[in-house]
């Protein structure tokens, strides 16, 4: 589904990713962990198509297509979804209107008829329960004045509505208390199917107690320095990152 080959990228002349290799198959959940500044968020943003990064080497193939050559909206319509670490507030854009526009953009791409307001509302009511979100949020501007937890749950609500094939969750656990974390994780787990994949980017192990990864990768200084199964996350929790990053030759 996703093939990242020798990806080198940077911003304003500073190299951030220094040769990432990662292969994700349908049905898999991958976790990318790493200390601050290791390049985790850059990787997430780059997959979603944020402008401002310079790719100096390597390629990213998504279902055989050159992902890096696609506009952000093309990627989204092709099924790539980024749950933002910092969801953007858009004062004046009504949340329901925004969600319906996004859902109908996806439907149009798939050759489906647009949902009218009534059908959309019933779809949204069904999904919003899953995330235990208050319906009043839908009447407000996108993310504006939402609490940290509401913003993160609203991201997963969008994921539930847009039904991506590849979901990239960028530090979705940051700023969540344990109850909110469980709600978010439950939402994400319900969206897991044999045809879809998830890339979970996190600093801490605790999210991975609830979203169980098939593979864990440790990112350090722009490279994946170790890969393993879910037990690697537990080991990181116990021993921290130092034991890996001090011996960077242990690349799996």
């Amino acid at each position: 589904m996703l093939e990242i080959k020798n990806l080198h990228a940077g911003v304003e002349g500073r190299q951030i990713l220094k040769g990432i290799h990662l292969s994700i198959q349908p049905g898999e959940v991958h976790a990318v962990m790493g200390p601050n500044g290791s390049g985790k968020s850059t990787l997430a943003q780059l997959l979603a198509g944020r402008a401002g990064y310079t790719i100096t080497a390597g390629e990213v193939l998504y279902e055989g297509q050159d992902l890096l050559d696609m506009d952000p909206e093309e990627r989204a319509r092709a099924g790539v979804f980024l749950a933002f670490q910092y969801p953007v507030e858009i004062p004046g854009v009504n949340t329901t209107y925004f969600l319906r526009t996004a859902v109908n953009a996806m439907r149009k791409h798939r050759g489906q008829a647009p949902l009218d307001a009534v059908k959309f509302l019933s779809l949204m009511r069904e999904k919003i329960k899953l995330l235990e979100l208050d319906e009043s949020l839908l009447k407000r501007s996108v993310n504006e004045g939402f609490s940290g937890g509401e913003k993160k749950r609203a991201e997963i609500l969008q994921m539930a509505l847009l039904e991506p094939r590849l979901a990239v969750l960028d530090e979705t656990d940051s700023g969540l208390d344990i109850d909110a974390l469980k709600v978010v994780a439950r939402g994400v787990n319900r969206l897991k199917t044999p045809q879809t994949a998830q890339l979970v980017i996190t600093h801490y192990q605790r999210l991975l107690d609830h979203i169980i990864p098939d593979y864990v990768h440790v990112l350090h200084d722009g490279c994946i320095v170790k890969s393993g199964g879910k037990e690697l996350a537990l080991e990181l929790e116990e021993r921290g990152y130092d034991w890996i990053v001090k011996s960077p030759l242990q690349t799996a």
Partner: peptide, 20 residues
């Protein structure tokens, strides 16, 4: 970028922000 990342094309994203 946030709007584009949800599949909304740039023209429509600009229009939404202007109305916003």
């Amino acid at each position: 970028f946030y709007l584009q990342a949800r599949g909304i094309d740039l023209d429509n994203a600009r229009r939404m922000l202007m109305h916003a």
